[in-house]
Structure formats: C-alpha cells, structure tokens
Design a protein around this nucleic acid. Structure first.
Lengths: 112, 112
DNA sequence: CAAGTATATGCGTATATGCTCATATAAAGT
DNA sequence: ACTTTATATGAGCATATACGCATATACTTG
C-alpha cells in the first residue's frame, strides 16, 4: 500500500486537468483506436467517424497532455499512446463501472 | 494482462462521465479529505475552505456517481468513499504526472 | 409548536469547451 | 511555380457547469 500524502493545490489542479482531458468521449475513442498501435490522422478520422477538424483538435489536446506522441512522416502525422499508465487507468475505470452496473442490475432481481 | 475489447458507445460515455466527475479540483479536495475516513459536511466545508452550498453540490455529484456514500445521523450527513478503486485511480494519475514533471525537469539540466 | 442548526436546492451569471465552417500551413508531385 | 493532399487553426455559436446568493427542507431542542 502506498502512503497518501496530501496533494498541494497545484498538484490537485494538474490531476484535475488530466482527468478533464480523459473526460471526452471522442478523446476516449481516439485513445481506444490507438491501443493497437500508431495511426495517422486520416485513419483516426475514419475509425472514429469524426470530422477532420475535430479529430485534429482532440489529438492536439491529448498530445499537449503528454498522453499521445506525434510523429510526422511526409504529409501524414502519426499518433500513438505515449503514456503507459493510460491502459491501466482505463482498465480501472471500466472495472469500477462494470461492478457498479452489476450491483444496480442485481438490485432488480434481488427480491425474487 | 487484461484483454482490451472495444468499448460500446454507451460504455464510452459512462467512462467519460466518470472521468468528468473526477475532473474538478474541489471534488478532488473532498475525496482527498475523505481518504482517512468518514466526515460530515461541516467538517468538509472547513477542510476544503469552500462554501457550504458548493461543497454540498459537489458531494451530491460524487454520490450520484457512486464514488461517495451518504449516511444521515441526526442533523449531520456523513460522507465516505464508497468506490474502492478511487485511491488506486488517484495513485496512477499522480504517478503519471510525477513522471511527466520529472522528465520535463530533466530536460532543463540534460545538457550540462 | 417555535426557534435554531445542518444540509440541500432553485436561480442567475460567468466561464469553459466542444463542434462546425472556412481557411491556413506544410509537404509532395507534376 | 502550381496543384493536390494531409493536417492544423481561427472565428463564431451552442451548451455545460461551477459558483454565489438566497431560500427551502429536515431534524433537534426548548
């Protein structure tokens, strides 16, 4: 078990910002699309069914947060997941949601 | 290692919502204040230096997200962390940020 | 039942942010 | 140099949400 020291106000803000970056469905779609490796913008536009402008913006947000990394190759720009903690983070959250939904589902049948 | 299946659009939304709940500094302050156990609203108002109305609202948001649990005792309402994955989540994010800052700090002194 | 205390909530405002359209930039080919 | 293709970005609009103020609700005590 790790000890919890209180976070400074500044650290708290950074944590909030990081969660905030992950709090958009389109950005999660992009992250998910990159789980199996690097892709360029056009591919991501197709996969996520978003507009080019919007995808580009979100990619920038994710890159600025150091969650993705950018590599330019000729006309294309390739993005990949740069932060190794992202998969684990998603796993933890998904697990929590699954448990929560299971509990709620159980509440319906618990009486019978 | 857990396998990654693609998340449904609905699941994606739930994940985004959950991150969104954690994306507010005041809510993180509240969570942090509750790491060492149950507290009532007045105590939380004092600890976080927020207004009573604002603290109350954020507590409601956190409770609706099943992150906190509410227990009423007389006039007071006690809140505690209900979701056991929250501490781990915070650890992972803090770790990622620390690494990121360390790397950025290193970039300044790397040349010498 | 009146008064006091702890918590919740309705409402208005300010700010942030996601989206779209149009256009700019950058690199490649002709 | 001009055109084409891939990506980024400026501007405007629409929506969400955090906050403060005032007030409502819930419970306790006299």
């Amino acid at each position: 078990m790790t000890k919890h020291r209180a976070l400074s106000e500044e650290a708290l803000l950074l944590v909030a910002q990081r969660f905030s970056v992950l709090a958009e469905p389109m950005r999660l779609r992009l992250i998910q699309a990159l789980f199996d490796g690097e892709k360029n913008v056009s591919e991501l536009v197709t996969l996520t069914e978003g507009t080019q402008a919007n995808v580009s913006r979100h990619l920038q947000t994710l890159t600025a947060a150091h969650i993705l990394a950018r590599r330019k190759e000729g006309l294309q720009v390739y993005y990949k997941i740069a932060d190794p903690t992202i998969p684990r983070l998603c796993e933890v959250v998904c697990g929590a949601i699954e448990k929560q939904l299971a509990k709620q589902a159980g509440a319906f049948t618990a009486g019978r």
